[in-house]
């Protein structure tokens, strides 16, 4: 039985190190900012002083008391639009991380468990996605399906499943090759039971790290597609397309700068969380799986 304790120990101690991660000031900052944005996304209709789509007569107004972050080229309140933007980017990013994990996790789990040609096929597919830059592939998908936020989400899912697949496959394989599963098999305990007992709890750590980092990345990629006009369409208050509008009105810098700051703050917060969680867990599996 000693091999069981030997294998399980690192996982248990990694979990125990999480409280240490909370002592890091940046972790706390990340958590607070993420929580604040989640609240904003929930409460935007009540927090926003103006209708994000309502056009006014005050065009290009610099930040002031009535319009905290100024108004845009159609007289819309930038502050309200930035708050409403959270309702688009954050739920979409979370949805697509869940989708990417379901797809990637299933494929990776099957690849690791079955091995053979399934493994080969899934991993070559993942290699292929890695070989083509994310935005190029996403652009091709959007070009094929037509622009639109939903298509952009599909495109991002398509380029982000391999990371999840690699993490899950790696964990499944590590556990299947471990001595104590071999011992269990000799004693008549089926492999899938070991997987259920050990993979699932083991997966929680790396996947939570990956999820934090990937949510940040997803927000970046979604906003980039929207910036290029391939995602959200006007007049949706999407952060990326708001920056794109700002790019056409240089003199009114507030139109583009504030949505960008919104993106930086939420992505940075997710990265703070992911980075300190990664320090707590085994750093290598996740770093390698994330790749580009």
């Amino acid at each position: 039985m000693s091999s069981v304790t030997v294998l399980r120990q690192p996982v248990a101690s990694a979990w125990r190190r999480i409280p240490g991660a909370w002592r890091q000031p940046l972790t706390v900052v990340g958590l607070v900012v993420v929580a604040a944005w989640l609240l904003v996304a929930l409460l935007a209709p009540w927090l926003a002083p103006h209708d994000p789509l309502a056009q006014g007569s005050n065009l290009y107004q610099a930040p002031s008391a009535t319009h905290l972050l100024g108004t845009d080229e159609l007289g819309r309140d930038v502050f309200s639009r930035v708050l409403w933007g959270a309702r688009i980017s954050i739920p979409l990013a979370m949805l697509l991380v869940v989708l990417a994990f379901l797809i990637g996790g299933t494929l990776g789990g099957l690849a690791g468990y079955l091995g053979g040609w399934v493994d080969e096929l899934v991993m070559r597919g993942a290699d292929f996605v890695f070989a083509v830059p994310t935005i190029l592939l996403a652009m091709a998908v959007v070009a094929a399906l037509g622009p639109g936020l939903f298509h952009a989400v599909l495109a991002v899912v398509l380029v982000s499943w391999p990371g999840h697949a690699r993490v899950v496959r790696g964990l499944v394989r590590t556990i299947m090759q471990s001595e104590y599963v071999a011992v269990g098999r000799l004693l008549g305990s089926p492999t899938h039971r070991a997987l259920a007992v050990d993979v699932l709890p083991n997966i929680a750590g790396p996947v939570s790290v990956l999820a934090a980092l990937e949510t940040g990345n997803a927000i970046l990629l979604l906003s980039a597609l929207s910036f290029l006009g391939l995602g959200a369409r006007p007049p949706d208050p999407e952060w990326g397309s708001m920056v794109s509008t700002g790019a056409q009105h240089f003199e009114a810098w507030w139109i583009g700068v504030f949505p960008g700051i919104a993106i930086v703050s939420i992505v940075l917060a997710f990265n703070f969380l992911g980075d300190s969680l990664r320090d707590a867990f085994d750093p290598k599996t996740i770093i390698k799986a994330r790749g580009a």
Binding site: G216, S244, G260, V264, V267, L268, F270, N271, D275
Partner: peptide
């Protein structure tokens, strides 16, 4: 180390299209 952590994660968290525009501005 903490300052470098913020700078490096900041680099990875900033949308490049926005950074490009701010830099140009």
């Amino acid at each position: 180390d903490q300052v470098i952590r913020v700078v490096s994660l900041g680099g990875m968290s900033t949308p490049q299209f926005w950074l490009a525009l701010v830099a140009l501005y």
